[in-house]
Design a protein around this nucleic acid. Sequence first.
DNA 1: GCTCCACGTGCAATCGATTGTTATCGTTTG
DNA 2: CAAACGATAACAATCGATTGCACGTGGAGC
Lengths: 335, 335
Amino acid sequence: MAATLKDVARVVGIHPATVSRALNPRTSHLVSPETVAKVRKAAEALDYVPNPMASGLRTARSHTVGVVIPDLTNPLFPSMVRGIQDTLTRAGYTPLLVNTDNHPDTEATVVGSLRARRVDGLIVATARREHPLLAELGDALPVVLVNRVTESTALPSVTTDEQHGIRLAVDHLVGLGHSEIAHLAGPTWSSTGHERAQAFQRAIRGQGLTPAKKPFPVTAWSVEAAREAALKMLRAGSVTAVVAANDQLALGTIEAARHAGLRCPRDISVIGYNDMPFMNLVDPPLTTVRVPVSDIGAEAARLLLSLLRDEAPSPVKHVRLTPELIVRGSTAPLR
Amino acid sequence: MAATLKDVARVVGIHPATVSRALNPRTSHLVSPETVAKVRKAAEALDYVPNPMASGLRTARSHTVGVVIPDLTNPLFPSMVRGIQDTLTRAGYTPLLVNTDNHPDTEATVVGSLRARRVDGLIVATARREHPLLAELGDALPVVLVNRVTESTALPSVTTDEQHGIRLAVDHLVGLGHSEIAHLAGPTWSSTGHERAQAFQRAIRGQGLTPAKKPFPVTAWSVEAAREAALKMLRAGSVTAVVAANDQLALGTIEAARHAGLRCPRDISVIGYNDMPFMNLVDPPLTTVRVPVSDIGAEAARLLLSLLRDEAPSPVKHVRLTPELIVRGSTAPLR
DNA sequence: GCTCCACGTGCAATCGATTGTTATCGTTTG
DNA sequence: CAAACGATAACAATCGATTGCACGTGGAGC
């Protein structure tokens, strides 16, 4: 049905190989300009579209990139995926999206299916601090980590400056007069959870305060997990403000506070992290650290593309973007 | 690097063609059980994974499906996409996701890229009532519409019962004592906008009421567009309740009401449609018609898979799922 | 007037899997 | 005893694009 190189060649009256060279920008200098013009015209007329399976078979490159995320329905990821998609597509690559649901087994399966599809590279948003699989993958094909990183191996990554983000949050609260500030930490297996917790300690000490008791890490990045942990935290001691490790945890904290008879922001201030969609419309509108999610995706795609282009192995590169504080209604001056 | 059929054949000491037949469940009956067993073992040992580009080239099937959505960052779609992904993946197909941003030109481009990739079929969530491109596509390959349908041509589809959903909303409001109920309609180019508007008229008349003045269609499914249209609507006459054509429009309506000095639900009740994530956390928690978004996706994928399997053209099939009313805080009895 | 080179193009092999046709073998049967 | 048969498996062609190599032509240089 669809036209092939041979069809174009027949129309122009030349050999298919010449048509191939003429149409490929990298080799078209080998063909006379007149022939190139004729080939272009004929290809256009036949609406010739190269068959990626044929060229992929020959060149062993699929022009396809695997994108591994925990779960597309987590509102953090759609923007990131858009950033990735837009950048990859513009460069002629097709992203293949898979979800791991944060299960290492599922991850192994879906990554397997990506490799079966012969993806040229991977963008991985599911890194854990300990993550043996990633080391393996990094040896086999270009891999870029987004958002989270791993300690298992050195891989290029695009992340944000957690240190800075958390400091913005803490400084904001201190500026409002708070001194009894607690951190509801993310899962410790996640680099973001870990780094934000450390950044919190540093920021607090930087303000001449002492960290509230012990850290309160949750087991999952979910509203439900946060609710329970926050309840314990609130019972554990007097706290007038909470820096949550992400927006879900902040929402859970607010619910827990409400459950404990505290009103936010009147009795307790809460700050989130990420600024997911609709966080301006929840009750109360959430003060949060905004992460340039779409840019992270775009940057990761660019990084991977550069890896795919270069033959020579380049030094492992880390890109860090800067978050900003968005002040809304969930934080208020200490009364 | 990776093992091929030939490698497996060499290990077993037979011809590659036989290995191919042994490994393919559809042809393995042509090979003796003992050979099949030996082949399976060798394939396992070499960790042979078939090259989809090679088999796709030969069979002219990519085992790939295009999924065309307006915009992944619209919270309605991630769930739908998950439903599609999970179902397709289980069946050995890989979804290729593209965004059109509701631009027909962008759509033409991205659909073009899908066809260049030789997708075996399409799942399209961007149908407009007038949509010439869809007729063309439907002739060229299997296409299933989701959520929205078109009048340009008859294509299989998976949608919800708008009639029923809107009736649930209207009946709820009437039950609360409202009689001056308006509809903030979606764009008329969208079948959902159109059908919900018609369903509204019917439901109102079914309650023995008269529809409030004229319809108020917005130009886009956005909070901003809704805000403006809702302002005009509120000025146009007394209204105690609004059925919005989707959640974004409901949010815009609530903002407009607030701007006009009305409190929701005290002075005005508002109902949304879809029940996007976080609609339980906005202020006030949104009463809305919940659509089984993930099921829609899964059902569409199943429908497409059946089309891909059958050689014989089957009659065009339409699946309709039933929505339900979720009552929250944005509706209250008429005072 | 000859060699040599550069340029443009053709030729043919190749990527890995699939599939229609053919060959082989052991067995059965008239 | 030969032909026929069924079951396996080998052979070879094919899908469409790419690419190393060979070939021919025309022009430059001596």
